[in-house]
Design a protein around this nucleic acid. Sequence first.
DNA 1: ACTGGAGATGACGCGGTTGTCATCCTGCGG
DNA 2: CCGCAGGATGACAACCGCGTCATCTCCAGT
Lengths: 224, 224
Amino acid sequence: MRLLVVEDDKTIREFLTRALVESGFGVDASALASQAEKLALEGVHDALIVDLTLPDMDGLELIQRLRAQGVGAPVLILSARRSVDERVLGLERGGDDYMTKPFAVAELLARVRALLRRSTPNQSEATRLRVGDLELDLIRREARRGGAEIQLTQQEFALLEYLCRNAGRVVTRAMVLDHVWKMRIDTSTNIVDVHIHRLRGKVDKDAQPPLIRTIRGVGYVLKD
Amino acid sequence: MRLLVVEDDKTIREFLTRALVESGFGVDASALASQAEKLALEGVHDALIVDLTLPDMDGLELIQRLRAQGVGAPVLILSARRSVDERVLGLERGGDDYMTKPFAVAELLARVRALLRRSTPNQSEATRLRVGDLELDLIRREARRGGAEIQLTQQEFALLEYLCRNAGRVVTRAMVLDHVWKMRIDTSTNIVDVHIHRLRGKVDKDAQPPLIRTIRGVGYVLKD
DNA sequence: ACTGGAGATGACGCGGTTGTCATCCTGCGG
DNA sequence: CCGCAGGATGACAACCGCGTCATCTCCAGT
């Protein structure tokens, strides 16, 4: 992970750089906005730490210029300006976080990590659903129970996905029919019952406790 | 944009809710972690504002439980605990921002907006592939050509996905057989040819120019 | 133009998937 | 204890996806 520090105060800049390097980050540092702009445009940085009071340009302007040129990395603003108005302004102008001086290094590190964690989206996060020891991988269309893969058909997967998305909440047959089968409410069919049965045969067969529960007179729940 | 507020202090909760609603957000609020967990699992919220001191569960535990269950929405922690250690802990345990009480509403709004600005566009990025006017949604398993939906079977989708991932590069039958069918190199079959043919019938039938091209003696390319 | 070989295409049948139905089971109220 | 409604289950038939094969088409090199 590579960071860019833009800070004119030499003491703070070097102190910051050392702390970040010790934490395992690659760090470029600059005291001038113009120089920082060139560095940032290389697009190699994963996050920026920017002071607002710079000798050749206001930090906010730097941020806006970078954003306008397609630099998407998250920016943590580090400023001596403490007022609420200044903070709001900084956040509105493209900053992703705002810290005031003096600051605690530990907190700055934590905030930088939080920014990186979110901006480098672990794609498995949005594409995976978990309930108890059951795991669905929406991209690979794979289901696992306690690590063991479960072979599911299209419809079975769709139904299980719907149950997972509503884990803990009771879903009625009508809801399932609507979302999974895209049918209007139809009491003359029992597809849902049948598929629940087939799912149980695969999901709750070889494992305890059963995850798919029946709520009599209402519908079903997936619950740990 | 829909938010979830988890805060046990009634005054703060209602004050916050009102301020957020006035700013144009949809707001659900809860005083209990257990209830908040159920609400959050619906997956309809774009961001969460969580107090750490809750009557039935620690806010950090709530956040960890939600993360473990696949809730990816950003979390702003709102807490009376002011120490650096507490802040660091909150950010490390899955919080994306941390504010201490008392707080300025304007700043909170700005921080929530900053979180939403960054976390919203990321979703669809990893789950979509595009080549020319052809679009694959890996989650929904839908394919579109110039906006029109194309009905594909499992294998067809898998093959097209593989072609998309290697768009512009020539892929050999052996590569396709290996990645899509997980078969060892086998010259005695022409499944690939057949499926390419079926794909063409659906993808290149009603649109110009053809995207699937044959490279004689080598394999196929998907190219704009 | 001829020909060999690579790719395209259409037909076919096996097997898995899916929805329906009839029947059996079970929890709950009387 | 009984009866009923709601749910579970097993059998079945229609359908569809998939791989194979035989045949046809087209391109490249002579």
